[in-house]
Structures are given as C-alpha cells and as structure tokens.
Design a protein around this nucleic acid. Structure first.
Lengths: 195, 195
DNA sequence: TCGACATGTCAACACGTGTTGGCCTACAGT
DNA sequence: ACTGTAGGCCAACACGTGTTGACATGTCGA
C-alpha cells in the first residue's frame, strides 16, 4: 500500500489507492445498473469513502463516468492471421475481452440512455474496430460498412448474453459461440452480400 | 372523438381518448429516453393532462410501462416460405416492424436498465420468436439455441442502428440489410455450426 | 332540477439525487 | 516542535422524482 518511489516526474500521491477504489466501484456500478441508476452515493459506499470525495477527485458524475469508461478493445493484428480464420479469431478475442472486464458492459449499459456514453461508443468503434477492419479489406470504401456489420453482431451478442441474459444465449459455451458467430464475422469481414 | 357504440359488454368511456394519449406519449418517451429518464410529468405534459391522471388510470409508473410495452412481433408463418428464403424474409419483416413502431424501441431501451423490462423481453422472445423458430427446425432440441442466435443478430442490429446510431449501420438501406443479415439468420435458422 | 359519478386540476408530501462548503485529522517539510 | 496542506467526513442545499389527497368541473340518468 505504501507507494515508495517515482519522485521524478509525478509524485505518487497518498490518495492514489482511493482514486483507484472509486474507479473500480464506479465501473462495477455503471456496468450493473447503467448511468442513471448508478448513484454517486452507492459508488462511494462501495469504495468505503464519502460521496464528496468522488466529487473532489473527479469533478462530477459525467467526468467520473468518462474516467471509468476508458476502454481499449486490445484488438489483435488480424493481418497476421490466416485470412480464413479472422472471423473465428476476432470472435474468440471479443468473448474473452467481455468476460473479464466490466468496462465495456458499463459503456454498453450507459450508452443506451446517455448521449455522451453513446458518443463514446461510436468513437470507440470508429477508432479501434474501424482501422482493424480497414487493414483487412481490399477496397477501403467498404471498410466502414463491414465494421458496422461486425459491431451489429458483436454488440448484439453482448447485449443478449450479458445484459438481457436470454437463457439460450447464456447457455452457449465459448466453443459454440466461436463456431456460430465466427463464420458470421468472417463473412462480414471478407465475404460478399447475399451469401 | 365521440365514442358512439358498444353498449353491450364494456361501455365506451369518455376517458378512452385520454388513456390512449397517455399510452402514446408513454411509448414515445420510454422509447426515446429509457425507463428512468422518461418521467411521468413529461409523459403527462405530452398528453396535455395532469400527472395525477396517469396515476389514476395506470396505478404507477411500472404498470404504465407494462401497458405501453405490450408488443406483438407479428412474425409471419415461415413454414409457408421457401426454406432457402426464410432468413431474408425474417430479416425484412423485422426491419419493417422496427421502423414503424416505437414500442420495441421502448422495450429495448428500458430492458437494459430495468429488470422487469428485461424479463418482458425474455418472455417476448421465448413466446413469439421461439415457436416460430421451432416450427422450422427438425430437431426440437436445437430450437432454443437457434432462436437465441437469431435474437443476437436481430437485437444487435436494432441496438446499433436505432439506439447507438453507429453511422455506418444507419447508412444501410433496406436492401443492404436484407442482403447482409438475411444469410446470417438463414444459417442460424437452417444451417450448421462452423460454416 | 337534482344528485351521483366520472373527469380533471392544484398543491403538497416524502424521498433520493448531484453537489457544495465547512470542519476535523494526520502527515511532510522545515 | 510547528505549521501548512492533503486526505477525509459531515451536514446541508436545491432540485426533480413518484405519488397522494383534497377540491373543482362537467356530464348524464332519474
């Protein structure tokens, strides 16, 4: 807990642990309840501090969300994967990413009712998924459309499995997800319209 | 406006117009802002009546939502469609249904943050999409999984196009949607895992 | 004409929210 | 040892919410 070093550029503050606790609690609450239902008071209680601390460190709720929803999809470089396997590879990566990180769930839940969160989601897909897809497609003009289609299926899966919890989608194991959705993403990435 | 007839079973009440106005306003507000942001006061203002009328006619907010989110997908009988075309047909039907009815948007937006709405969504898919898919599949044991996959893609499309408004998804015209998503649903309905 | 009842309005309650400012406490620099 | 300041808590504010009950108005049957 005692932060020893790094006197060079930015001094390690004693409050860093608190800041981190707030951020973790915020992510969990935003992920579980969405933007408006996740209250500053509840987040503060989870982090075992006073609500006013949240304001002191993050200014207001909107900025807290912005900090909590910072997210990197960490997409792999699909150009180094055999072209016939990019769909399965991308599907597997996304599932793994979703299972172990609340952040994207927080973003998704919030984006449905909060304009700023929706904008963040659009930027995230434009700046992270977009280029990855573009690197894979011959005709650059097709890239946005293909990326959008991928988003369609990827977010739909996340929505039905983690948010709505449709039983038959929750029941799928990782292998089944890859086997079903992989070819879909493959077609959206490298295939043609109309089968 | 003057309701004349039907003295037989249930008398046409003078307040029916108001009830309908409330329901319409509620649907629009729930669809546009989700469950918690759609306020009784705003709905009442849209319907040009006092907020207390909403309570009188619908009891409380939860029951109002339940009444506003009553929804029928009106799925066509896919057994009468050539088997190779069920995917395209279902895709087209869903797009049309979505474009012209706020109700499903209201349900979707609300379901993300409201437990009761999520349960309603699960029931809707189980009772309406489930049987339609089951009638199409040879092995009945596969039906729930296939229906779930269809939900995955269908709701993902609705989410990205109508809620998140990803530009490249919004840009797709009806023909492109059917040409891209049709084969996907076709495979989920009648195809096999792993392409 | 009168009275019962449906329809609608007004003002208020109790509550939870984001947010603020004042106060206490403990540690680091001198 | 002393003091400035960062870290933290408490109480309160202003506001918007769902919800309630008392009161006014109009409509229709007797």
């Amino acid at each position: 807990m005692t932060e020893a070093g790094s006197t060079e550029t930015t001094r390690a503050r004693r409050s860093d642990a608190t800041r981190a606790a707030i951020l973790t609690a915020a992510r969990e609450r935003f992920a579980a309840e969405g933007y408006e239902r996740a209250t500053i008071r509840a987040i503060a209680a989870d982090a075992r501090i006073d609500p006013s601390m949240v304001m002191r460190y993050y200014g207001n709720k909107e900025k807290l969300f912005a900090a909590a929803a910072e997210f990197d999809l960490r997409l792999p470089d699909l150009t180094e994967v055999p072209r016939a396997e990019v769909g399965a590879r991308l599907t597997g990566h996304l599932v793994d990413r979703w299972e172990h990180d609340d952040t994207l769930m927080a973003l998704l839940r919030a984006a449905v009712t909060n304009q700023a969160a929706a904008e963040r989601m659009r930027v995230l897909f434009a700046t992270q998924l977009g280029p990855t897809v573009a690197a894979l497609v011959e005709d650059p003009a097709e890239a946005p459309e293909r990326a959008g289609l991928v988003a369609t299926q990827a977010l739909g899966f996340a929505l039905t499995r983690y948010v709505l919890c449709l039983p038959s989608v929750v029941a799928l194991d990782r292998a089944a997800v890859v086997a079903w959705l992989g070819p879909t993403l493959q077609r959206y990435l490298t295939g043609e319209q109309g089968e």
